Amino acid sequence: KILMCPEHETERINMYCELCRRPVCHLCKLGGNHANHRVTTMSSA
């Protein structure tokens, strides 16, 4: 099953924010609420 980002509906979730303990997409990481947070790949989470 492909998970889609709730904030960016057209983007797949492919990362996990370690600080917030939630999955995020690349747009969340690049310029969103998680820009300065440490993220890992979903396969490592």
Rank of each mutant, 00 (worst) to 15 (best):
N33S: 13
E11V: 07
S43T: 08
N14E: 14
M42S: 14
H8D: 00
E11Y: 15
H34K: 02
N33K: 12
E9D: 12
R38Y: 12
G32C: 07
L19N: 15
I2E: 10
L3T: 13
K1M: 04
C28S: 02
C20A: 01
R12D: 02
S44K: 05
C28F: 00
T40Q: 11
R38L: 06
C28D: 15
M15P: 03
T10P: 11
R21K: 15
V39K: 14
R21L: 08
Y16M: 15
P6L: 06
P23T: 13
R38I: 08
C25K: 01
E7Y: 03
S43R: 09
G31Q: 11
V39N: 14
T41A: 08
R12K: 03
S44G: 14
I2W: 03
C25F: 01
M4H: 07
Y16S: 07
M4Y: 13
N14C: 15
A35Y: 07
H37T: 05
H26W: 03
N36H: 10
A35E: 12
Y16G: 02
E11P: 00
L30R: 14
T41Y: 04
N36Q: 13
E11G: 10
E7V: 11
E7N: 06
L3V: 10
L30E: 15
M4S: 05
L3C: 10
L3M: 15
R38C: 13
S43P: 15
T40L: 04
I2Y: 02
E11T: 07
V39Q: 12
C20Y: 01
R21M: 08
E11M: 03
S44C: 05
N14H: 14
R22G: 08
G32T: 09
P6D: 08
I2G: 08
R21Y: 13
H8E: 01
A35I: 15
V39Y: 06
M4D: 05
I2K: 05
C20F: 00
C25L: 00
R21A: 12
C28W: 00
G32P: 11
N33Q: 14
E11A: 03
C17Y: 00
L27D: 05
R38E: 15
Y16W: 10
M4N: 08
M42G: 15
M15V: 03
N36K: 11
H37I: 02
N33V: 13
M42V: 12
V24H: 06
N33R: 09
L19P: 13
V24N: 02
R38Q: 13
T41D: 11
M15G: 13
L19Q: 12
H37W: 02
S43N: 10
N14L: 13
K1S: 03
I2N: 12
C5N: 00
C5D: 02
Y16R: 09
C28L: 00
H34V: 02
N33L: 11
A45G: 13
G31M: 06
C17Q: 00
M4L: 06
E7D: 14
L19Y: 13
E11K: 04
C28P: 01
C28I: 01
E18P: 04
L27H: 13
Y16V: 02
K1C: 01
E7C: 05
P23E: 13
I13L: 13
T40V: 11
T40D: 13
T41H: 02
K29N: 14
T41S: 10
E7Q: 10
H26V: 11
I13G: 15
V24R: 02
N36A: 13
A45T: 07
E9F: 03
L19S: 14
E9T: 14
L27P: 03
M42H: 02
R22A: 12
P23H: 08
N33G: 13
S43D: 09
T41I: 06
R12L: 11
V24Q: 02
Y16T: 15
G32S: 10
R12W: 04
C28K: 01
L19C: 15
M42K: 14
K1E: 06
N14M: 14
M42L: 11
R12G: 10
I2F: 12
H26E: 11
T10N: 04
P6Q: 10
Y16C: 13
P6M: 05
S43I: 04
T10V: 06
N14P: 05
C17H: 01
R22F: 08
R21V: 12
T41E: 14
N14Q: 13
H8W: 00
P6G: 07
I2C: 03
C28H: 01
K29A: 12
V24P: 02
I2P: 03
K29R: 11
S43Q: 13
G32F: 04
E9R: 09
Y16K: 06
L19M: 12
L30M: 10
K29H: 09
E7G: 04
